[in-house]
Design a protein around this nucleic acid. Structure first.
Lengths: 195, 195, 195, 195
DNA sequence: CATGAATGAGAATTCATTCAT
DNA sequence: TATGAATGAATTCTCATTCAT
């Protein structure tokens, strides 16, 4: 399995750094190679092309990111805690790895349709996690049911995403993780059923 | 004034279309020139370089977009209507001009710091509009005041933005404008003070 | 006559300055126009193209330069004085107009064959002045006659030219005119017949 | 060492030919690449930019040219022979390689200050060789000492340079090398101490 | 598997020149 | 004559990708 080889991993790590520092388009394959400690040509033994590096970075890093959240939320029993856990882990993981944060908040926004589609595949898993929490909440009459799930999901994801983007744009000057409880309160309010 | 000259406007319009169709990086200056009906060199009489085209497109189009919203919300008397108007106009304007929508939702996300900074200047005005609504709501005790404004603003902007992005990503297959009342309800719920 | 019109002269003067400051290739027609106080298009009412500006500058300025020397040397009676006068005027005229000096010492060296040919036509007149002095000197047995004129002419012109180039290259830091008598002595020594 | 690699040398040789034929400004990088038998991009593995090609050509070719002269003059015992050797080698080397001659006599005259400075560094070595001959001649009372060295050096270099330029301008129609003894005689006359 | 020198397609930008006013 | 906005050909340089070693 290619993905377990050390050079593959080295290139992914090198790429995250280089892309975070320069942006995808301004990142040169040769720079990624140098940062990863491999030769330019070696990149092409592990990745089809430059685009494939970007997509692989997303799949690897975001996959991990999402897995972490999926596992942790499953462990929680009530819906409220699940949502709080999701928010906390979302913030924590990005706060810990600011290179990754830059990549997800800025470089994830590729308009190239081919790249977009792949990114969305990865994100889909995350959105499904959110949806399942929402559905559980609605089933248990904790969340309002006069609105459809996609809308509520957009509020959740949009709020988290916008908050992180803000944090990245302000060069991580404030404590992102500390915001989790307030964000949770805000979202719960929006979601909860009346009375 | 350069910005009122017909060729300037023609290039802005041409650029919106070309960038919406191809993305900024894949858009060639010569393609923008052709679409605008001017010679390649003419572009450089009105814009410093390719980057300047992108930034000018944002400033022109977004400036207009935001002005429209700012004016309309001011006309409304109560805070609830202001928020609804903001949501409706946000959706309407992008629904009407899908080239613009593509540009704002995808191409607006440039990681190049120089471009980012300029974009943020423009967005700042919009965020200020949101803030003033929030502050009015808090003053009038309609909105909760145990959370700080930036957080609430992120929820509002994040939700709208995420909703539009979703609509763009799904190739505008659903009626964006019709979502406005529900989004309004959802956000009001999150914002409103208890009791 | 085109050449007596004020704009023609203005352009020639503007061109000397701009070319001296930037070199021919780096000089833009629009810059010359601006410096001359005329519109870009006006240049083309007086000159065929950019190359024609350069050649005209040479013809005007060098023609004048050479005429001055030709007239003054003719007035002198003996050969020695003619040579001294030539050297002095050569140095004086360039010392007085350092823009012209830069143009003659650096920009005169164009390798474009078309330009070269024209420049040489102008220079030819100067070399003829030198030749006539040499021939008179040989006739009067003052100069050696075992060497042919071109060689001696090359020594004279080469020495003067190299001296001025040196002065230009050292940013006119020393007094060029004061060198005339010594250069004269040096050249006379090389030229004079033995015994 | 980059300079010993075959492609480096090939590009230098290609560049000399192309520049001699077209002049520096009219020479396209792609033409130099083709003549050198390498791809356009390869040029940029060995040279920073087009200007760097020109400067490198000068440094390589002139450096060699001057070394040859420096070595040969050192071997001679008396001052007269040193000067004759210098003249002969100066003429011989350029007569043998007319591409190089064109480059040194026409393209060497660049007014771009950055390029000029580099060229002068290389020429400096040659002028030092001339100076040391002059100083030896003055010490041994063979040369006059009422004139300063720079002036005499300018006569020597100016005469040689002007002679070669003439030969190049006349398309190498006469035998340059055969002129050496006469030029030597002429210069010795100018330099030698009286009596 | 790994290398990195070589490739060459591709694109932004400049600027001499034109021409409608 | 004079203008200067508009033109578009022309050229340097970059960088993803290949392939001989």
């Amino acid at each position: 399995m290619k993905k377990n080889k050390p050079k593959y991993k080295a290139i992914i790590e090198g790429a995250v750094q280089v892309i975070a520092e320069n942006g995808y388009h301004a990142s040169k394959v040769s720079t990624i190679a140098k940062k990863s400690g491999v030769a330019d040509g070696t990149i092409y033994l592990y990745f089809k092309n430059k685009e494939d590096i970007l997509i692989s970075v997303f799949k690897e890093k975001m996959g991990q990111f999402i897995q972490e959240i999926a596992k942790a939320t499953e462990k929680e029993n009530d819906v409220q805690s699940k949502l709080l856990t999701l928010i906390q882990l979302h913030f924590e993981q990005l706060a810990v790895d600011h290179h990754l944060a830059i990549v997800t908040q800025l470089e994830l926004r590729q308009s190239d349709p081919k790249i977009r589609a792949q990114i969305n595949d990865v994100l889909k898993v995350y959105l499904d996690v959110i949806d399942s929490i929402l559905e559980e909440g609605m089933e248990k009459k904790l969340f309002r049911n006069d609105l459809h799930v996609p809308l509520m999901r957009q509020m959740i994801f949009g709020t988290l995403d916008e908050t992180v983007t803000n944090w990245v744009m302000k060069n991580q000057k404030f404590d992102l993780v500390r915001l989790a409880p307030d964000v949770h309160k805000l979202l719960m309010n929006g979601l909860k059923s009346e009375g």
